[in-house]
Design a protein around this nucleic acid. Sequence first.
DNA 1: CGGTATTTTGAGTATCGTCAAGGCCAGTGG
DNA 2: CCACTGGCCTTGACGATACTCAAAATACCG
Lengths: 263, 263
Amino acid sequence: MAADITGMHRGPNGAEGIDAIAAFADMPASLRRELELIRRVRFYRPGQVVLCEGDTPEEIGLVRDGILRMQKTLVTGRQHIVGLLVTGDIYGRVFDGPVHFDVEAATDAVVWSFARRPFEALLERTPELERMVLRNLLNELDRARDWMMILGNRKVTGRLAGFLLVLCTRFAEVEHLVDTERGVICVTVPISRADIAHLLGARQETISRAFHALADAGLIAIRSPQTFEIVDLDGLVAETGEDSALQLSALSRLRDRLGPRRA
Amino acid sequence: MAADITGMHRGPNGAEGIDAIAAFADMPASLRRELELIRRVRFYRPGQVVLCEGDTPEEIGLVRDGILRMQKTLVTGRQHIVGLLVTGDIYGRVFDGPVHFDVEAATDAVVWSFARRPFEALLERTPELERMVLRNLLNELDRARDWMMILGNRKVTGRLAGFLLVLCTRFAEVEHLVDTERGVICVTVPISRADIAHLLGARQETISRAFHALADAGLIAIRSPQTFEIVDLDGLVAETGEDSALQLSALSRLRDRLGPRRA
DNA sequence: CGGTATTTTGAGTATCGTCAAGGCCAGTGG
DNA sequence: CCACTGGCCTTGACGATACTCAAAATACCG
């Protein structure tokens, strides 16, 4: 599978160094060159299928730009999103069997693709690379647990607040989704209402109502269907009913960006 | 932290080989010996704290026996379980910072503990060990995604059905929770109603009602508050509304155990 | 056999899902 | 330039589901 990739093509060779991804910047130049040799650049348009559940992918992917969503398709035809992949994220099971979910592009996306065999060989020879993959996995695990926390919230407004906060923290530095100009946080939600609904385990209509409920409560302001101002950060945190230490540290960084910088 | 470990003590040296854990059985004898040298055996009783959120643990833990729960404590004082650890699972962040959740014993538990520094040093020298840790992470990630799928279910009966199925599949081989005698599956739920409620994002009372709803629907039979017969496996799967390929493969193994063996 | 923790049950309320209709926006073609 | 179209988002009304609070029943332990 993973064959109906119409929009893909090889990028101009050497157009961009591997070190454009921060995690590679510290690696030895020789390793970077080896990676560049086996790299292919692929382009996806929103909705394009990157991987299908059950595939044993022949390539390991690294997101250069854009957002991919991981999702499971149910027998009912419905699908449930189990996570988003952003710049720097790795997918495709290193050293392991088939993937357990589909991967689709949520936005226009650029992916660096590495043939599985050479990548794994490189992995075995270079501890730095293996360490990076391991860190990546740990990160993904943390994010998965964050989603679990969010999904554990019994009210949809709470789940949505958590979703917005994750967007403001984990995804802030990696994508251009969050602006902190003039003392306000402005976040762009990169997926549709239907996708949010799938992610949060609710219906589209309920998500819509929840957005407006948060707005009515004075926690956010709806600028456009895709962009929101975070009016009351602490209120949002309170709405989630939680503030895990993880989010707290990320939140304090966010507050720092708000405070002294440009206001 | 991780100091109020009253029940811990060193096990008799060499009482049990490292290869008691299946994943280690294939490893070189020299490596196993090195691991045994830095191993400490710790015992926990239900409710004992193993790790606190925010700790940077000085030890990597490996569950030998029993069940630990990973949980986040909310400001409201409530806590939400983000996963269970069973035999063979590794916790404590290798190569990384603090843990993002508490770890508590859910049952009587035996843990093999390895001082962080020597374990990481060993990890760097031995690809087999690193590969094993990596596989372990991939497994945990899959389980986290499973939980996400289950939590995404909008009905509590659906989430509970998913929980029971996960218990029958992922946790079946590793703990003595599932009996398949006389052609029926009998599963022991190792945690309290309150814990299930925390895990599935519902209230204790709702969990109770959901159990009885599944029983009334003829999908399960309640033997005791902790043990249940799986009467209609396919019905349970249908109740979850999903059957990810992952679960399907594990389920077919379960059906195999049901069919030809002893019936 | 009592005492405690856990589980279950009941009644009323809040929240969410469902179905159906309407509004907004961008792209298309006359 | 404007009407049309299709996709996405919003709104409304009603039924289903889950939560709250309270009390009773059961299981567990000594």
